[in-house]
């Protein structure tokens, strides 16, 4: 049904109460399947999770005991959770900044490049197609202390003393996860920024050029401000995916060395499944949910404001 026909149907529906009721019943019928599936697979488990977060359920027994706010009190007191929260925030801020900076740079580069434009776009986008698990395995192999290409390259160029167990070092494990995730994610955001760049009228840059503005000034005063819309989308998406990061950590470090790279999502899995504390894990998931909600609301409000100002 074309847009005009729908509009006509709606207009008729408003004019005729019987038609309006019919229209509403059709709408309900179309919504019903999605609503049922969504309720069954999202709303009901979420509501169940709220209840479980107030229990000491181990995840395997039939015995589910209500323990009030004990899980939330433990979250407030647990140094392991505080460490995971700190790691989550460090990782999120680093990823949001680095992924977006890398994506903008790549987008500007592939937009300006004269030859092999499509090749470069494909090459930079390719890592996005890999799953987090595959990417994790690849980077774990590259960064392996004994057999990894990276250390072997360092050794080959006479920098053997710089060789480190990148994923086993408390200093570098987090950095390795962040950089490999940027490698994987930047191409995706590059496409969004590229679309934004191509929406900027060429006349603006031409006029600025005639007025004597150099490349950097054009980028700073024309390109960057006009990318505000793309930036809102990319920042929110990268922030949410950074807060939920799991696969890379599971494959590359298992949250280690020790607890050095444990994040909230990873600790939820570890305590819920590995440590038989489903109730506590669910309480942590509730905290993460509230954290993502809060940060997203703040971010959207701030970035929308910036879009309007621009």
């Amino acid at each position: 049904m074309s847009a005009n026909l729908v509009k006509a149907e709606q207009t008729l529906a408003v004019a005729n109460p019987k038609r309006k009721r019919k229209w509403q019943s059709y709408a309900l019928l179309f919504i019903l399947p999605s609503f049922l599936i969504y309720t069954l697979f999202v709303i009901v488990p979420t509501a169940g999770s709220i209840y479980l977060s107030f229990t000491s359920w181990d995840g395997i027994s039939e015995d589910i005991r209500y323990i009030g706010f004990a899980n939330f009190v433990e979250i407030l007191q647990s140094t392991r959770v505080h460490n995971a929260l700190k790691n989550t925030l460090v990782m999120t801020i680093s990823l949001v900044v680095l992924e977006n900076v890398a994506a903008i740079l790549l987008a500007v580069l592939v937009d300006k490049v004269r030859w092999f434009k499509n090749l470069f776009r494909s090459v930079f986008y390719f890592p996005t197609l890999l799953s987090g698990v595959v990417m994790g395995f690849v980077w774990a192999m590259i960064l392996n202390y004994n057999f990894g290409v990276f250390n072997q390259m360092l050794d080959a160029v006479g920098l053997g003393s710089w060789m480190v167990d990148w994923l086993g070092s408390p200093k570098y494990a987090m950095l390795a996860i962040i950089l490999s995730t940027v490698w994987k994610g930047a191409g995706y955001y590059m496409i969004i920024y590229l679309a934004g760049l191509q929406g900027i009228p060429a006349e603006l840059n031409e006029a600025a050029s005639i007025d004597g503005a150099g490349g950097w000034k054009q980028f700073r005063h024309i390109t960057f401000p006009l990318l505000a819309g793309s930036m809102t989308v990319c920042m929110v998406l990268s922030m949410i995916s950074a807060l939920k990061i799991f696969d890379q950590i599971a494959v590359m470090t298992d949250g280690g060395p020790g607890f050095e790279t444990e994040t909230l999502t990873y600790i939820i899995y570890k305590v819920g499944f590995g440590e038989l504390r489903q109730g506590f894990g669910t309480a942590l998931a509730m905290v993460l949910f509230l954290l993502i909600l809060l940060v997203t609301l703040i971010q959207v409000k701030f970035l929308r404001k910036r879009e309007v100002q621009m």
């Binding site: 086993g168 070092s169 280690g256 060395p257 607890f259 305590v271 590995g274 440590e275 038989l276």
Partner: peptide, 18 residues
């Protein structure tokens, strides 16, 4: 406690790593 073993082994990894 069944969850203690893995936690303790990880703590011991951290003891050496740090």
């Amino acid at each position: 406690p069944p969850q203690f073993r893995n936690w303790y082994y990880k703590l011991m990894q951290e003891l050496v790593a740090k």
